[in-house]
């Protein structure tokens, strides 16, 4: 309590009061808290995958083909979520799949964010010809439907996880570019920018040291949502046979492999899809909550 009472006296730029204020706005949004919990759960599973998984995810077991999960009549505790058509433990594969999907999401966000950040900050700061050139390029990329562009890129570079990451990241660049550009344009005429200019700060310094920290809020929101798009698009590529290749336990690839068994062993199809759905949902819920908490216009 005493800390709360202290707040007005403190310097208004003290970082922990910002965090506390953020948490106070974020906490009442139950959906966002659920989203954060989902993300933390998936990240922990991803980090501890080798410890948590009861079996090697690629271990073939001839004596355990397409065993049903425990809630079915013939299910056993030795394979709680059943096994697939070549006798691999599905629980272990899903746990390792979390590692792959979280890794893909992270790589996609880092790649697309850094590309989009550079393009957006230059377009927004310099305006004029630079802006027109960059935005024309972005318009062109955006004319291609995301999955169509991604599958074309993968078909050029060859299927596989790293190429799928590059393809999905390229598709996401326009979102980041537009968001960074819009916030840089709003900032660049402000007085603190003018002040640094009069002090002789270089353009690069103004862009990255002065303006960028003030544009972080929308960027963080977009990065969170970029995670969910990345996971979803990479899984779609895996499903089309263009992403991770078997026997990699990637959720989309697992779905594609299990399609022939949809009638006889439906759990092989439903479980990987639920993992995709809930990981994507977690990032979307969290991103939504972040936006509401960080966007001052929506504050009551």
């Amino acid at each position: 309590m005493s800390e709360v009472a202290m707040t007005p006296i403190q310097d208004e730029h003290v970082p922990d009061s910002f965090l506390r204020e953020f948490w106070n706005h974020f906490k009442p949004n139950k959906g966002a808290v659920v989203g954060l919990a989902l993300i933390i759960a998936f990240v922990i599973i991803a980090i501890l995958a080798p410890l948590l998984a009861p079996y090697d995810p690629t271990l073939l077991q001839d004596n355990a083909l397409r065993l049903p999960p425990i809630w079915a009549e013939a299910g056993t505790w030795s394979y709680p979520l059943g096994t697939d058509d070549v006798g691999r433990d599905i629980l272990s594969r899903l746990i390792h799949g979390a590692r792959i999907s979280m890794g893909i999401g992270f790589a996609v966000v880092i790649l697309s964010l850094s590309m989009g950040l550079f393009l957006g900050i230059f377009a927004g700061y310099y305006g004029g010809k630079v802006d027109r050139l960059i935005m024309r390029f972005i318009d062109i990329v955006m004319a291609f439907p995301s999955i169509l562009l991604a599958i074309t890129v993968v078909s050029v570079m060859g299927p596989g996880i790293s190429n799928a990451i590059i393809a999905v990241a390229i598709v996401a660049v326009p979102n980041f570019t537009r968001i960074v550009r819009a916030s840089v344009m709003a900032e660049r005429k402000k007085q603190y920018v003018m002040a640094s200019k009069t002090f002789g700060a270089s353009d690069l310094r103004i862009m990255f040291n002065e303006i960028l920290p003030n544009c972080l809020a929308p960027l963080i929101v977009q990065a969170t949502l970029g995670f969910s798009d990345g996971i979803l698009n990479a899984a779609a590529l895996g499903f089309l046979g263009l992403g991770a290749q078997p026997p990699t336990p990637e959720w989309g690839t697992m779905l594609a492999d299990s399609r022939p068994f949809i009638e006889s062993s439906p759990w092989m199809v439903t479980l990987p899809g639920l993992c995709i759905l809930f990981s994507v949902l977690g990032f979307n819920l969290f991103g939504d909550g972040l936006r509401d908490a960080l966007d001052p216009r929506l504050k009551k």
Partner: peptide, 22 residues
């Protein structure tokens, strides 16, 4: 609606087939 927005439709299609066709 957020659940629908997060839906991997390649999986959702299979689930619909599983329920309504199979």
């Amino acid at each position: 609606s957020l659940l629908g927005y997060s839906m991997p439709i390649f999986w959702w299609g299979l689930v619909l087939i599983l329920i309504f066709s199979v």
